[in-house]
Design a protein around this nucleic acid. Structure first.
Lengths: 197, 197
DNA sequence: GCTTTTATTGAACACTTGTTCAATAATAAT
DNA sequence: ATTATTATTGAACAAGTGTTCAATAAAAGC
C-alpha cells in the first residue's frame, strides 16, 4: 500500500555507532552520518527524528549488544569470582586490542555530555545501574560462598568496581599500556580479596 | 612607544577556564568567550592566536593553580599516609561541593578530546604524569615508614590511584552521592593497606 | 605636533551546522 | 491503469562556527 523502506535500520545504526564511538556526539556531523550510511538527510530524519534521535537509537543498540556479550561472561557455571575476573580480563583485552582506543561508548558519552542534559544522562544512569546490579549480584554470590570478607558490602563494592571501570577506560586514553592496565585490574580485584588468575 | 594592552590576561583566562570547565572545549564557542570576557574577537586572536590557543592557555593556568592547591596538601609535616587521605578527602569535598559538578578540567579534557589530537593529549599526559609522580613519592615515603606492604609497588600503585581518581570523577557524574564517593575512596585506600581517617 | 607602533573595534568572511520540504519515485490496493 | 500512501531525493535554509582585516584609537619617542 506504500513504498517500502529500502535500507536496513540496524545496519544504519551500526554505522552510526561506529561514528559516535570514534568521534563522539558533537564531533559527528549529520554530513558524516549521511556519508557513512549513504542515506540522505531526509531519510535519516524520517527514520529517527533528528540527530539526537539517531544518537539515542545508536546508544540503545550499543547497550543491547554489550549486554549480550556481558551476559555470556557473567552468567555461566563458573565460580562467581572466576566470572568476575573473566569480566575484567575481557575489559582488558577490549582496551588493548582496539587500535583506535575508542573505549566504551557509554562511558565516552557520560564524559562528553553535560550533566544538564537530563534525557541522555538518565538513560546512561539506567544502563550503568544495570551493570552495577550485575556486579552486585556476583559479589553477593561470592559472599555466600565465603569468597568475600564478611565486613564487605556488595552494594558499595559494586559501585567501587563500576568506578574502577570508569577509571580504567580513561586511564587507557593517557597510558595505553597493557601491563599497567593489568596491574590496575589486579589491584582493583585484590581489594575485595578474591583470587585472580 | 605603542598602545598598551588594556585587559588583564590572567583575568580573561580565568573566565575562559570557567567556560571550558562548564561546557567543554567544543561546547564553548568564540562568541561565548567574547561575551564572557568583553573582548572582541580580534583582541582574543591577537592575544592567543586562535580558539585552541585560548584553550591551551586556560588549561595551563588551570593546572598551575591546581598544583598550588595540591602542593599544600601533599607537602607538609604530616605523615605521608595522612597526606594521602587528606588529598582524597579534598577530592571528595570538591566533588560534593560543586553544584555544577564540573569535575576536573584536565579529566574532562581527557574525556572529550579524541586520542588523535596529539598536541592536547601530550600536554595532558605531562600533567597527569606530574600528579602520578607526586602520588608515587608519597607512596615511597609510606613504604619507607613501613606503612605499605612489602610486596606493593609504589609505581604501579600510583597508577592505580590515578585511575581511581579518573573513576571517581566520572562516577560523580552519574551518582553525585557523597556517601558512595566516600565509600569508594575508603575502598581505594584500603587496597594499599593504609589507615584512613 | 608629528610619526611610529601597537591595541582595539566590529563588520564581514567562508564554512559548517542541523533541519526542512516540495518534488519525485516506488509500492500496494482498487 | 488509477489512486493512495509512503519512502527517497537533494537542494535550500537559517543560524552558528572560527577567523580575518581594514579602519580606528591610544600611547611613546622624536
Amino acid at each position: 500500500m506504500a513504498r517500502p523502506i529500502t535500507f536496513d535500520r540496524t545496519q544504519v545504526l551500526q554505522q552510526a555507532i561506529q561514528l559516535f564511538w570514534l568521534q563522539g556526539y558533537s564531533g559527528t556531523s549529520v554530513k558524516n552520518l549521511v556519508d557513512a550510511t549513504g542515506l540522505q538527510p531526509g531519510s535519516l530524519y524520517a527514520a529517527f527524528g533528528d540527530k539526537r534521535g539517531i544518537f539515542l537509537a545508536a546508544l540503545d543498540t550499543y547497550f543491547n549488544t554489550m549486554k549480550l556479550s556481558l551476559f555470556g561472561l557473567l552468567h555461566n557455571d563458573k565460580a562467581p569470582n572466576e566470572r568476575l575476573t573473566d569480566f575484567f580480563n575481557h575489559l582488558l583485552q577490549e582496551s588493548s586490542c582496539d587500535p583506535d582506543r575508542k573505549g566504551c561508548l557509554l562511558i565516552n558519552t557520560l564524559s562528553e555530555i553535560p550533566v544538564q542534559d537530563a534525557e541522555i544522562n538518565s538513560r546512561l544512569q539506567t544502563m550503568f545501574a544495570e551493570v552495577e546490579l550485575e556486579l552486585k549480584q556476583i559479589l553477593i554470590e561470592c559472599k555466600n560462598l565465603g569468597q568475600l570478607s564478611e565486613h564487605q558490602d556488595p552494594e558499595l563494592l559494586a559501585k567501587f568496581l563500576l568506578s574502577g571501570i570508569f577509571g580504567l577506560r580513561l586511564f587507557n586514553k593517557t597510558q595505553p599500556d597493557t601491563a599497567s592496565l593489568k596491574a590496575i585490574i589486579d589491584q582493583l580485584l585484590s581489594t575485595i580479596h578474591l583470587n585472580q588468575d
